[in-house]
Write a protein that binds this DNA or RNA. Structure first.
Length: 561
DNA sequence: TACGGTAGCTCG
DNA sequence: GTACGAGCTACCGTAC
């Protein structure tokens, strides 16, 4: 059933004739930066599987040649690729990837996508996974080796089945597979942090927080972190507080915001500072010996198909200078940032085939400015950047089904525009008249969901998801098509830069923005390629309208925002 | 004291 | 009749 081989020459000899390899790994844990590979199982089509005991090799880097110029097939490729790359096997970053788990997610989104369940569904075979959690650190038993061999044997069988059943040249499937090496590379290489500056910013904030804390302590005898003390101090000063369901006085942000008293203001200020200190401390703790942050990106975790990021989440770095300037390029390198302006509106225009919106985009009209000028009744030309920023949520709100009531509250809170309920309704009416096909799409969706309770919606690349709420049914396909778009761009960029042998890698992806780190000498080339990638992707997804891409080069994230 | 849910903040 | 997707933390109530 299998052979254990640890001799490199022998491995090369056996595998050199094959272009396709099925690959699996057994590891001592789940963290590719901490845990180790124990076994690498490789199976070429139609032959006996091979097991390599990684503990018998000094350096796994020697395995690099075996993987060069191959198509690699995995189940959950990101996991195995991360381990392989962290073990020094860099060739896999250039490999063409297939992933049976991704195939499951793309072609059978409603089903379970574990290897065990997919093998059961497609091959009617029960795969025993008990060994998965056995100890892979000690001397291995026969059972463990057999288990390891089985996984890669059934991986091949599963892949053959899937290949016969589905079209694996499907663009969505190909894209999802192709971005995996790019994302593994982003995690592996990391995003450099200016630790010195971080420490200075942190110290400043700590001093400020300390100052406020001792002020509150000496003047009012209260501790900022104790809601009970804050409440009684406020009451002593003649301020009424609402009560929580349990009967305690409420000192939440919502309540304190509306209180005109020093205590409330200082407590809010110190809470904000504490939060910012927390974020900075988090970056510090997360940063590695190399001064870099290595977050975890997920490419398929969200309903809409968007990527997400954790430990830490560098998709939600505050826009303030004191945070963005901390994310820097390595020595002799630069950061290149590129983004799609107003992407979700462009997608909505194409998705709903709204003639007016498409026309406006063709003419280069800024829809955020336009909407603000309509809400506030100010000429389009007089809308400055600050006013324009306020237009974003209104455009998105109206697009995704915001009610007149919400719009009214929104206009009051954010614009200080007093709009009564009827005026808000009129505004939404104007919106619908301006964009009739958007309105039609919204009406059709609400009818469908009322009739069927839940409906399936589809992105422009054919990603399918189920919505039970009207608002989800409007949002998912647009947000999801945006995900399709950026993923296409990532895939194109990664493969092209490998072909051109450009030393550059993605360091962050923020939904409509890609940040790349590149050698100074090649920065012009790389930024051109990045722009080309994103425009190529836009041409595929929304060919009907122009889709500009804004590219900037700088030493830190602040400079390229 | 530990855990789970929620509100509120960050980003898009 | 409903504006959406994430991650992270402080806070609050509950269980032990």
């Amino acid at each position: 059933m299998f052979k254990v081989i640890n001799n490199l020459e022998e491995l090369k000899e056996i595998l050199s004739d094959y272009k396709i390899l099925f690959v699996d790994t057994e590891t001592t844990g789940l963290n590719p930066r901490k845990d180790k590979i124990r076994l690498v199982q490789i199976k070429a089509p139609g032959v006996e599987s091979i097991i390599i005991d990684a503990f018998q090799l000094k350096n796994l880097h020697v395995l690099d040649p075996i993987f060069e110029n191959k198509t690699l097939i995995f189940h959950n490729a990101k996991f195995d690729l991360s381990f392989l790359v962290n073990s020094g096997i860099n060739a896999v970053l250039k490999s063409k990837i297939h992933d049976t788990m991704i195939a499951g997610k793309v072609f059978e989104p409603e089903k379970s996508h574990s290897l065990k369940n997919m093998v059961k569904d497609h091959l009617s075979i029960h795969l025993d996974k008990e060994m998965q959690i056995s100890n892979w650190n000690q001397e291995l038993t026969k059972e463990q080796l057999e288990y390891a061999a089985k996984d890669v044997i059934f991986l091949e069988k599963l892949f053959v089945k899937i290949k016969n059943k589905y079209n694996l040249s499907n663009l969505l499937y190909r894209t999802e597979c192709s971005i995996i090496p790019a994302i593994v590379e982003a995690e592996y290489k990391g995003f450099k942090i200016d630790i010195e500056k971080l420490l200075v910013n942190l110290e400043n904030k700590r001093l400020k927080a300390e100052e406020i804390a001792s002020y509150l302590k000496t003047k009012y005898g209260i501790s900022y972190s104790k809601p009970k003390e804050i409440a009684s101090a406020l009451i002593k000063n003649g301020i009424n507080l609402p009560k929580t369901s349990k009967g305690n006085y409420e000192t939440s942000e919502r309540v304190l915001k509306n209180i005109e008293h020093e205590i409330a203001k200082q407590v809010l200020e110190i809470r904000k500072l504490k939060k910012e200190i927390d974020i900075l401390e988090n970056y510090l703790i997360s940063s590695d010996k190399d001064g870099k942050i290595h977050p975890t990106f997920h490419t398929w975790k969200t309903v809409s198909g968007r990527m997400s990021c954790e430990n830490p989440n560098i998709q939600a770095v505050p826009r303030k200078k004191e945070f963005r300037e901390l994310f820097i390029s390595d020595e002799d390198k630069v950061l290149i940032g590129a983004d799609y302006p107003q992407i979700e509106l462009r997608i909505a225009a194409v998705y709903t085939r709204d003639k007016n919106m498409i026309e406006l985009f063709k003419k280069g009209i800024d829809l955020h400015k336009l909407i603000v000028s309509k809400v506030m009744n100010i000429p389009y030309e007089e809308i400055n950047e600050e006013l324009r920023q306020m237009g974003k949520p209104v455009n998105f709100g109206a697009l995704y089904g915001m009610s007149a009531k919400k719009l009214m509250e929104y206009a009051r809170n954010v614009y200080s525009v007093n709009m009564n309920y009827d005026e808000a309704r009129v505004f939404l009416k104007i919106y619908k008249e301006t964009y009739p096909q958007i309105a039609q799409w919204q009406d059709m969706t609400i009818r469908k969901i009322q009739k069927h309770k839940k409906i399936q919606v589809k992105t422009l690349l054919g990603r399918v998801m189920t919505a039970e709420r009207y608002t989800d049914a409007l949002n998912y396909p647009i947000q999801g098509s945006g995900a399709d778009l950026i993923k296409l761009a990532i895939a194109y960029f990664h493969s092209k830069k490998n072909k051109l042998n450009l030393e550059a890698n993605i360091v962050n992806v923020i939904h409509d923005e890609i940040i790349v780190e590149a050698k100074k000498e090649t920065s012009e080339k790389v930024s051109k390629l990045l722009k080309e990638s994103m425009q190529w992707a836009a041409k595929k997804i929304i060919p009907e309208i122009p889709c500009p891409v804004e590219v900037k080069i700088g030493k830190n994230w602040q400079e390229i925002k």
